[in-house]
Design a protein around this nucleic acid. Structure first.
Lengths: 143, 143
DNA sequence: TATTGTTATACTCTATAACTATA
DNA sequence: TATAGTTATAGAGTATAACAATA
């Protein structure tokens, strides 16, 4: 392994560790009204619009029956609604209700508030550094 | 809200999102032999050394009986061992075995490999930018 | 016949309450 | 009496297999 490869692995380790820690802290921060697996579905719908149970199950690496159950709970709580699929009678679309959207919005805000609070002590140079890093990391996480 | 505050919140949002995405991708990447909640215990022991079941339960925001069960499974699999607490007969110390350490090491390596692979396309300027950002984020995640 | 989604059943993880051992 | 840990019991989530409806 060359020196630059070692440096890249060290950077990979630190970046991964930092991201995992922040994700963990952020997750514990927002004591949302819904369970994590339920919130995950709301987040997917918020991000990608109405989707079928099958798509949602694939996104969360979960079985179809599990997703059926989760969607049932969310529907009973009025956070999502099932609507007929326009082109295929076998499929169903799950969409976010206003109440579901409100929970998503509130949770995201509380998580961002935590993150913003932890950026308070940084100076302008550090903030602009993180600004560029955030853009890079968003690209990396999409790749 | 001032303009700089808005920028800080926008940065907070992007950083949080990127960290969550990377943490998620990394988690799905390593199909470890042990379940996530079990791996979490191994990671805590790897990071902080031998600890009591009570400490481990607090770290994972989990009840004491749940941690008892998880430690039982890990002990049955030979990944951790219970040893008497030196100073207090009521307490027990959970420590990593060689087999447990091996799983941790292998999983960390596979996660870092994923992260490193996703840094491949970046040039030296971008890598040194992320190097500084990683240090900042590690500080932030400890705060 | 293939596919989407749902029900049936069993297993695992977690929590609260009760119990045991030590301080 | 207080604390650390473990058992007992019940509730919630998930998976595999079987079923219903549509393509």
């Amino acid at each position: 392994m060359t020196e630059s490869e070692e440096e890249r692995f060290a950077l990979a380790n630190d970046l991964r560790l930092a991201c995992q820690r922040i994700a963990r802290r952020v997750r514990f921060e927002s004591t949302s009204q819904v369970a994590p697996h339920q919130f995950s579905v709301l987040a997917h719908l918020h991000h990608g619009g109405a989707q079928t149970p099958g798509q949602l199950a694939a996104l969360d690496r979960v079985s179809a029956p599990s997703m059926t159950r989760t969607v049932n709970c969310l529907e009973a709580d009025g956070l999502v609604a099932r609507v007929p699929h326009p082109g295929d009678g076998r499929q169903v679309l799950v969409e976010l209700t206003a109440a579901g959207l409100a929970i998503i919005t509130r949770t995201i805000a509380s998580r961002d508030t935590w993150m913003a609070a932890h950026l308070e002590g940084l100076d302008d140079d550090q903030l602009s550094l993180l600004r560029k890093a955030a853009d890079l990391l968003l690209e990396v996480s999409n790749g």
